[in-house]
Amino acid sequence: MTKFWPTVAALMWKDILLELRTRDIVISVLAFALLSLVIFNFALGPSPQITPVVAPGVLWVAFTFAGVLGLTRTFVLEKDQGNLVGLLLTPTSREAIYVGKMLGSLFFMLLAEIIILPVFAVLFNISPFRPELLLVILLATIGFASMGTLFSAIAVNTRSREIMLPMLFLPVVVPIIIGAVMASGTALEGGSWSDMVKSIQLIAVFDVLALVFSAFAFEHVLQE
């Protein structure tokens, strides 16, 4: 067995190099999230009273759907040129492959989200750079990436994979979406930590379960 973390690092570095060359994931996630923020503004109307109420919901709808888009890319890239076979041929543990791919996706999603936040701040006229909100974004994105990496490895081998990933992913991550929307709402209203403890706990519990289960299940998903 090769060492765990060096292989994880190699996988991540490979994905980062590819992303630097193509910018596929970050650009598509960004563009999609920005567009949805703009469309939401039209859908909800320009009234200044409504924006603070709906802002957390809008933010997480944009993040969730943009995330699905990015997650689809991560395995399409491995699958379409047959590189998944190349990965499977290496003596690394399948958990290392999972963690490497998951951390790669996490990195790109966080990057896109950090770029979206200021735009969100301007369009919805709020100041989102609070440590509480950043923590919620980090935790929720970990959950998205850990569940999403497993599901996109499944979806990439199915017919009509563009539909299959959101079908599998969205109902299962509902607890994260609920927790994230609630905690962000509290954070944006300037609420205290104690008001958001329960939602953050909810997301954290989901993250742990998703990570442990996905790492276990990944091997069963990769085999042909």
């Binding site: 109902p171 299962v172 509902v174 607890p175 609920i178 927790g179 609630m182 329960k198 939602s199 909810l202 519990v205 989901f206 379960l209 289960f213 299940a217």
Partner: peptide, 17 residues
Amino acid sequence: IIGFIDVPIVYYSVKLW
């Protein structure tokens, strides 16, 4: 397996919400 594990978490989260 995931679907079944997820059910109580969904229930809890909706109650919280």
